[in-house]
Write a protein that binds this DNA or RNA. Structure first.
Length: 262
DNA sequence: AAACGAATCAACCGCATGTCT
DNA sequence: CAGACATGCGGTTGATTCGTT
């Protein structure tokens, strides 16, 4: 006997998430963690499939996400990792705490690829297309500040060089999914049979510390939660004192991987 | 001020792989 | 062992935002 299908695609909502849906999802996951994604929308009262919930959480609602553009160092690291790993965005994201595979992928396609092309480098192979420079990464850093200009210039000089020329990384046959090591997700999958996550979840609501923490179960202040400076809070530099340790303990109970927080 | 085009990014889709019955 | 299902991944799309004319 098999399991129930992931989502009966009947009556499920698609498209952009509303603030109310975000609130429900955040409140549920912060208080219960995720047991099985298939059950999350049902338990949280959402008309979404579990897949959509997981994506929304992973790419947008996860509290440990950094926001904003990638720093120079992060961008360099992405380029370096991409040269080694190819389009294995989840692997790359795993090396950049607080960044998601989707975010990195988007940034690559919209920024980095153009820069590499402008520098005369093949974004796929990272090899010079023609005669090229000695240290592309150094040039990249120099040009980082005029991103907009470079993007437009490259668009003009690209002569049709767009997504259509993107070829699969020859040296990297598609096998990223073969790696079952948890990568992008900050929430380690807690099996349904594991009672620890859900059992302790009721006591794991982050709050009650010195940090100005909106109670997710109270008013569903999701925006405030998302905008919080999590890195500072968890490192104790945000005035939270021991909040970092407390949150580590609490959040690990609901399935967070502490290493991903910092 | 309006129209147009480019850039950005959130979200969806389909596939691959691992797990469970 | 085989089939069904869950999950994760990468590619792609479409709506929105931003900049230019």
């Amino acid at each position: 006997m098999g399991r129930q299908p992931c989502c009966e695609k009947v009556g499920l909502k698609k498209g952009p998430w509303t603030a109310e849906e975000d609130q429900k999802l955040v409140a549920f996951l912060l208080s219960h963690g995720h047991c099985c994604w298939r059950l999350v929308p049902k338990l949280a009262g959402l008309l979404r499939c579990g897949k959509s919930c997981r994506l929304r959480w992973t790419n947008y609602l996860r509290p440990d996400l950094k926001r904003g553009l990638l720093s120079d160092d992060e961008e360099k690291l992405v380029i370096d990792l991409h040269s080694q790993l190819g389009n294995r965005w989840s692997k790359i994201a795993a090396r950049l705490p607080g960044r998601t595979d989707n975010e990195i992928k988007n940034h690559w396609n919209t920024h980095i690829r153009k820069k590499l092309k402008k520098m005369g480098l093949d974004p796929v192979t990272h090899q010079p297309v023609a005669a090229s420079r000695a240290d592309p990464l150094e040039d990249l850093q120099q040009e980082h500040c005029d991103d907009k200009a470079s993007s437009q210039e490259s668009a003009g000089s690209g002569t049709g060089a767009g997504a259509e020329e993107e070829a699969p990384t020859s040296a990297e046959p598609k096998q990223g999914a073969a790696c079952s090591v948890s990568t992008a997700s900050a929430v380690s999958p807690s099996p349904c049979s594991s009672s620890s996550a859900s059992a302790s979840a009721s006591a794991a609501t982050p709050g009650g510390a010195d940090v100005d923490w909106p109670d997710p179960l109270d008013l569903f202040q999701v925006d405030a939660i998302i905008d919080m400076d999590w890195a500072s809070i968890l490192s104790g530099s945000g005035g939270g004192g021991d909040i970092g340790v407390d949150l580590f303990d609490q959040c690990s109970d609901v399935g967070f991987d502490q290493e991903v927080w910092m």
